[in-house]
Design a protein around this nucleic acid. Structure first.
Lengths: 150, 150
DNA sequence: CTGATATACTTAGCTGTGCTAACGAATATT
DNA sequence: AATATTCGTTAGCACAGCTAAGTATATCAG
């Protein structure tokens, strides 16, 4: 009777979880290699990316977005400022806050670094059959919303 | 195997690459939270995992498997030894080498930590429609072979 | 067998990222 | 005006990554 359309999932979920976890780790490990050439570490590139794409924001917001504590973000931003990729300015309304905005150089380097980091992955994806690529496209969207509920 | 016909993928590959990359980062970031309770850091858990599943191996092999330099692995193993999760022994044939093997406690803790780390992911997967889960299962296998060619 | 070279790992010391605790400055509340 | 709260910084710890240089063992050439 229970020709289930609802969760028969508990059975296969562990295996999928395990494989996703493992693949995520090794994928990032491989791509990390390319990262170093830009002089942008992973965490800095990630933070810069948020600032570039979501626009100027406060240090606290940025810390929350990156799931990191405030002191950690203070230092990440310091590094980015030293590299000339980001600027800090006190908020005019509430002087406790610090707004972080990307410089032109920051935007440029981010795109360059991103391109380099993803090049190998893109090439590998470009070689697989279109059907499989479509599956991965769908899956990546599913994962996106899944991760939000972790 | 996947080379037979050249697909038109180049157009969508970048978007998929970008999303996969982003999702992998944020997924691991979330899961890492659970890691701390076991007292096993990510890199240590990962190294221990290799030793447990692939059996005893030399420090150099372990470093290669983890894509890390020898000095880094020396210290990771030191930490694991201090925690009583792993044992070191000089190779009898070639005394330059160090063999690393998991202790019973190491095996136990690894499985416990792994279970904890994946619990949230498994639960989230258990809640989505079976069809989507199947897509993710397929995708995870595709990614597995993809990563091998990165 | 000896001396040179190669290999496997360790030590030392640097950078960077994460944390908590404690603090300062600015704002909000009472 | 006094107190509490919020935002960010500083200080100080742990750990993970690296390179360069050192030690011990193995191997090889003569």
């Amino acid at each position: 009777m229970t020709r289930a359309r609802e969760p028969v999932n508990p059975e296969m979920a562990p295996a999928v979880a395990e494989r996703l976890h493992r693949v995520a780790i090794s994928m990032l490990r491989r791509l990390r290699t390319e990262d170093r050439r830009t002089g942008l570490s992973g965490p800095r590139a990630s933070a810069l990316s948020v600032v570039v794409f979501a626009g100027p924001m406060t240090l606290g917001e940025l810390a929350a977005a990156e799931q990191v504590r405030a002191p950690t973000m203070t230092r990440l931003v310091q590094g980015l400022v030293d590299q000339g990729l980001v600027e800090r300015e006190r908020d005019l309304v509430d002087a406790r806050m610090v707004r972080v905005r990307a410089t032109a150089e920051g935007v440029r380097l981010l795109h360059e670094g991103r391109a380099r980091r993803l090049a190998r992955l893109e090439q590998a994806l470009g070689r697989i059959p279109a059907r499989e690529l479509r599956t991965l496209g769908t899956a990546s969207r599913l994962l996106e919303s899944l991760v939000r509920e972790l």
